[in-house]
Design a binder for these strands. Structure first.
Length: 359
DNA sequence: AATATTTGACCAGG
DNA sequence: CCTGGTCAAATATT
C-alpha cells in the first residue's frame, strides 16, 4: 500500500536524522575529556535530547496504531516529514494549533539546531529584521523554483532564547516540494548547506560547532553509526515492512567481514549489530538508500572512550517480533562484553524505551 | 564570466 | 502607517 510505504519512508528519514545526531554526539563524546568544556557538555545534552525525540518518533511510527498520525499536507522535505514526533515536545502549541485549525496548505514548523540540513537545496532570496526579534529572519526558496516550478519555501528564524549554545532555530516550511528531488545528504559536515547564508551575520554559527565536532574527517564515523542504526532497527525496533525487505534477507552471517579489526568493535566477541549489517556490501547499501529514499550513507562507528556505567539499567527488550533476536544485541553486563557499536546503539535505543510501550 | 549572496527598495495586508 | 514578504540591483565568490 502506498501509504504504508510512505510511512516506512518517513520512519527511515527519522532514523536518518537520528543518525546525524548520533554522529555528532559520538564525535563530541569521543573528544578527550579535557576538551569537552561546558559548551560541549551543553551541546551533548541538547543533541541527546533531540536524539531521544528522534527515537521516540521512530518508535511511534513503527507502531501500526500510530501510522494514521502522520500529518498530511506537510512539507515534504525529508526532515520535515517527521517533524510531528520531533517537535511535539518543543512546540506543542504549534502542533496542537495546527491540528485544531484548518490546515494551511503545506505549512510546517520545526524547532531545530540544524535549520539548513533537510536534504533539499535552497536559495536564499531575502532577509528581514523582524520586530522584537534579535535575529533576522531568512527566506529561502527551493533551488528548483524556476526550472521545475517548485513552490517550496522555508523561513529560518534564530530563536532569541538561543543566544547561548547551541543556537536553536524555528524553521517554517511553506508549500510542498514539487521538484521531487531530495539530494543525498551524505556529510554531516555540511554537504548541502547554502554557503554563507547559513552562517548568519548575527553570529549564530552551528556550523562552527559542527566543524569543531568533526573527527577523522573521512566519513567513517557517519558510516559506522548509520550501519549500527540500521542494524538496531532491523534487529529489534522495526516491524516487518515491505520496503525494508532488502534488509531482511541479508547475505548469510557466516559471510562475515573480511577484517573485523578494521572497524574495531572493541573486541568483537559476540555477533554485533555491526557484524550483521556489514554483510550488506556497499552496492547493496547504495541501492537501499535510493530505493528507500534515504539520503544517508552507512558508516562505521569509532572506538569511543566513554563509559556506559552511568546509563540506567536496560529494561526488557520491547519487541521480539523479528527474525533476529534483539536480546543477543543487548548490553551484557555480566558476561562477555558487547561490541561498542552494538552496545552504543542498543543503549540509545533502550534509553528511549520508557517512551515506548511494548505491544 | 558565471554564479551566488546581500541588502535596500518595493509591495500588499492589516 | 507599520510590518512582513519579495524583488532585483549591487556585490562577493568561485
Amino acid at each position: 500500500m502506498a501509504f504504508q510505504q510512505e510511512a516506512v519512508g518517513k520512519l527511515w528519514e527519522e532514523l536518518g536524522r537520528g543518525y546525524n545526531l548520533s554522529a555528532k554526539l559520538l564525535a563530541l563524546l569521543s573528544q578527550p575529556s579535557h576538551l569537552l568544556d561546558s559548551h560541549g557538555q551543553e551541546m551533548a545534552v541538547a543533541i541527546s535530547q533531540q536524539l531521544s525525540q528522534v527515537f521516540r518518533a521512530s518508535l511511534s511510527m513503527s507502531n501500526p496504531g500510530n501510522s494514521g498520525r502522520m500529518v498530511e499536507g506537510r512539507a515534504t522535505a525529508p526532515e520535515a516529514a517527521i517533524m510531528e514526533g520531533s517537535i511535539s515536545q518543543a512546540t506543542p502549541a504549534i502542533i496542537s494549533g495546527e491540528e485544531v485549525t484548518p490546515p494551511r496548505i503545506g505549512k510546517e514548523e520545526e524547532i531545530t539546531a540544524e535549520p539548513y540540513k533537510d536534504g533539499y537545496k535552497w536559495k536564499k532570496y531575502g532577509q528581514k529584521n523582524i520586530k522584537n526579534r534579535k535575529f533576522a529572519r531568512l527566506y529561502f526558496r527551493c533551488m528548483h523554483s524556476h526550472e521545475r516550478g517548485c513552490r517550496a519555501k522555508k523561513q529560518v528564524q534564530q530563536q532569541d532564547s538561543s543566544i547561548g549554545s547551541p543556537p536553536l532555530y524555528k524553521v517554517i516550511y511553506l508549500n510542498e516540494h514539487t521538484c521531487h528531488q531530495a539530494f543525498p545528504n551524505v556529510n554531516i559536515t555540511n554537504a548541502n548547506v547554502p554557503a554563507t547564508s547559513t552562517t548568519t551575520r548575527n553570529g549564530a554559527d552551528f556550523d562552527h560547532a559542527r566543524r569543531h565536532l568533526h573527527v577523522g574527517g573521512n566519513g567513517e564515523l557517519e558510516d559506522r553509526i548509520m550501519t549500527s542504526t540500521f542494524s538496531t532497527v532491523i534487529g529489534g525496533a522495526a516491524p516487518a515492512a515491505p520496503s525494508l525487505s532488502p534488509l531482511q534477507s541479508p547475505p548469510p552471517v557466516e559471510a562475515s567481514p573480511s577484517d573485523p579489526a578494521s572497524y574495531d568493535t572493541g573486541g568483537g566477541q559476540s555477533p554485533s549489530l555491526l557484524d550483521l549489517s556489514m554483510c550488506l556490501d556497499e552496492t547493496m547499501m547504495d541501492e537501499m538508500y535510493f530505493s528507500c529514499g534515504s539520503p544517508f550513507r552507512p558508516v562505521e562507528a569509532p572506538a569511543a572512550p566513554w563509559s556506559l556505567s552511568s546509563l540506567p539499567p536496560p529494561p526488557p527488550p520491547p519487541i521480539e517480533a523479528s527474525s533476529i533476536d534483539p536480546a543477543a544485541y543487548m548490553p551484557s553486563r555480566g558476561g562477555h562484553s558487547l561490541s561498542l557499536d552494538a552496545m552504543t546503539m542498543a543503549e540509545i535505543f533502550l534509553w528511549s524505551s520508557p517512551l515506548f510501550s511494548p505491544r
